[in-house]
């Protein structure tokens, strides 16, 4: 496979995953805040700030009033706004175009339909009444894409490259969500006597990761900081957990890299090392320094992705 095309496929996977997480985070936060148990969590300003924080464009000025329609438009459909879902979907298609001869007609067609769905979505309707419909539309379509990737491509190197992108991005987005919700929990603590440890935000977090129901099945209790983190970071059975993503990353690395004893410093080595660390990590260790943990994991994921580019995509 051409190095350039592999790069396209990798980023196609990343943008696919990113579109979905941004859409879902926007949807869940916006709508679950409507029945949040405290006034801060219900406040529109609070929700909008949380959205901006999660996509990586936090509003620094704490006093500045945010305009709801403008923020929603930016995150959804503003072609001039880098973080917009629209631009993520454009990037999916652009990258798919660069690898068009390698992917199936069915996958390409689904991507193309997805692109036209987003491109032709009426921005006026979107900011006034379409937020729910649009974000659900996006998450459904990303699920279709994932199904087409899994169901219509050979499970060879091409598939593995895409899945590397998907999983590295998924782990990254989950950590970003945790970061955003941790930030929110700190802001809302104390109102109505909530402690950070059992903030309402942890329920929202799990819903953002589509993991709330399964978490309830596992723990049979209202989520807390510790249980939510344990489930979303360390529980390998949870398909959205960082642990699960790392397991998949390592499996796909194995297909790309048949070497059983990878060079130290290789992508395989870095991913394997992080997974091994996670296997013996306790949530209590994480709790000691949550911010530090978040920054460290993001840094490590970034390193793996960079190494991947260096090792496979640059010649």
């Amino acid at each position: 496979m051409l190095a350039r095309v592999a790069n396209n496929l990798f980023w196609m996977g990343r943008y696919l995953e990113r579109s979905e997480h941004v859409a879902r985070y926007t949807n869940v936060n916006y709508f679950s805040s409507l029945d949040a148990p405290n006034a801060i969590s219900q406040s529109r300003q609070f929700v909008l700030r949380s959205l901006l924080f999660m996509i990586g464009a936090p509003e620094q000025d704490a006093q500045k009033p945010l305009h709801e329609e403008e923020i929603i438009y930016n995150i959804g459909l503003n072609p001039e706004y880098d973080h917009a879902i629209l631009n993520n979907v454009k990037a999916i298609r652009e990258n798919a175009n660069g690898a068009r001869d390698l992917i199936s007609t069915e996958l390409y067609e689904s991507i193309n339909r997805f692109y036209h769905y987003v491109l032709n979505y009426d921005p006026n309707y979107f900011v006034k009444r379409g937020l729910y419909d649009f974000t659900i539309g996006v998450t459904q379509r990303t699920a279709i894409l994932r199904g087409k990737i899994r169901g219509t491509l050979l499970h060879d190197e091409i598939y593995s490259i895409i899945m590397m992108g998907v999983n590295i991005e998924r782990a990254t987005q989950i950590i970003r969500m945790i970061n955003a919700k941790y930030h929110d929990a700190l802001l809302t603590k104390g109102s109505y006597g909530d402690k950070v440890g059992n903030s309402f935000e942890w329920t929202t977090l799990l819903k953002c990761a589509e993991s709330y129901d399964m978490m309830r099945r596992s723990y049979r209790k209202t989520p807390t900081l510790l249980s939510a983190l344990e489930f979303l970071v360390l529980n390998g059975d949870c398909p959205r957990s960082v642990m699960n993503s790392l397991n998949q990353v390592c499996n796909h690395m194995h297909i790309l890299h048949l070497d059983h004893r990878p060079d130290k410093g290789s992508t395989s080595f870095l991913a394997g090392k992080l997974r091994a660390e996670f296997q013996y990590l306790r949530v209590e260790d994480i709790e000691q320094d949550i911010n530090g943990f978040i920054q460290k994991v993001l840094e490590r994921l970034y390193q793996i992705s960079n190494k991947m580019e260096e090792e496979f995509f640059l010649y």
Partner: peptide, 16 residues
């Protein structure tokens, strides 16, 4: 891209 796919060969650009 159609021809490359149908022949099962790589579609390259100059920079590849």
């Amino acid at each position: 891209s159609y021809l490359a796919k149908a022949m099962g060969v790589e579609l390259v650009e100059g920079r590849d």
